[in-house]
């Protein structure tokens, strides 16, 4: 086959380009829901990890959060996905939901460490100043520390989202037709690997490039209070 014929077989015949597009839709959908779950749960976990009792010792919630992060980080995400699909949510046949949840719970563990690090990097004097005015710990966290932690959090968080988006490529294990699986299916139809695989790679790259640019804009906006 010539290059042109290979291209036609991989993308045009039987409207195969639609398969990539649908696959990308599923990839993005899972990554987006997982990112939201990861962000919310990860922030909660970070706050749990930072919580102390009145006399400064680690509290019970602290141990729970630490155990959670340990377990999630200590097992492969593909195994977590399989456990979720075949055991925990066996009765569900909504693959996107199960995958989103699985990746969300996984991402939360990493996000919690990012958020925790971001909070710890804010000078402790900010918290002390808030408390000395009579603000509660929660108020100082919300109005003073977290907004400043955001600046530290954005770059590694972008990294985490990018990793997450690419990690969804394993959802083929639970028979979801994401972008990678779509390329795979077309390869098995045409017996031609180059076009579908490189094509999928280019699509992933383009999506992540756009994401990177958006994160850059966000980071610059957040840094405004530094140089005025």
């Amino acid at each position: 086959m010539t290059i042109g014929e290979k291209f036609t077989a991989a993308f045009i015949t039987e409207d195969r380009w639609q398969l990539y597009l649908k696959g990308l839709g599923i990839t993005v959908e899972i990554a987006l829901f997982a990112a939201i779950i990861g962000l919310v749960l990860g922030t909660v976990l970070a706050l749990m990890k930072l919580s102390t009792t009145r006399n400064g010792k680690p509290s019970l919630v602290n141990y729970i959060a630490t155990a959670y992060v340990d377990i999630i980080r200590g097992t492969p995400s593909v195994l977590q996905l399989l456990i979720m699909w075949f055991i925990v949510l066996k009765s569900s046949n909504n693959g996107v939901l199960v995958a989103s949840l699985s990746f969300g719970l996984n991402s939360a563990a990493y996000v919690s460490e990012i958020v925790r690090g971001g909070i710890l990097a804010v000078d402790n004097g900010q918290m002390e100043a808030g408390r000395s005015l009579g603000l509660t710990k929660a108020m100082t966290m919300r109005y003073i520390v977290l907004p400043q932690a955001m600046k530290n959090i954005i770059p590694p968080m972008g990294n985490e989202f990018i990793t997450l988006l690419k990690e969804t490529a394993i959802v083929g294990y639970v028979s979801l037709n994401d972008l990678t699986r779509a390329a795979n299916l077309i390869q098995s139809r045409t017996y031609e690997a180059f076009m579908p695989l490189i094509g999928a790679a280019v699509i992933y790259f383009a999506v992540i490039k756009v994401l990177t640019l958006l994160l850059g804009v966000m980071e610059r906006r957040l840094r405004r209070s530094d140089n005025r």
């Binding site: 000078d123 004097g125 900010q126 002390e128 100043a129 808030g130 000395s132 109005y143 003073i144 907004p147 400043q148 209070s225």
Partner: peptide, 9 residues
């Protein structure tokens, strides 16, 4: 405080 601790944000 010695280091002012104005809220930077």
């Amino acid at each position: 405080f010695q280091n002012f601790n104005l809220f930077n944000n």
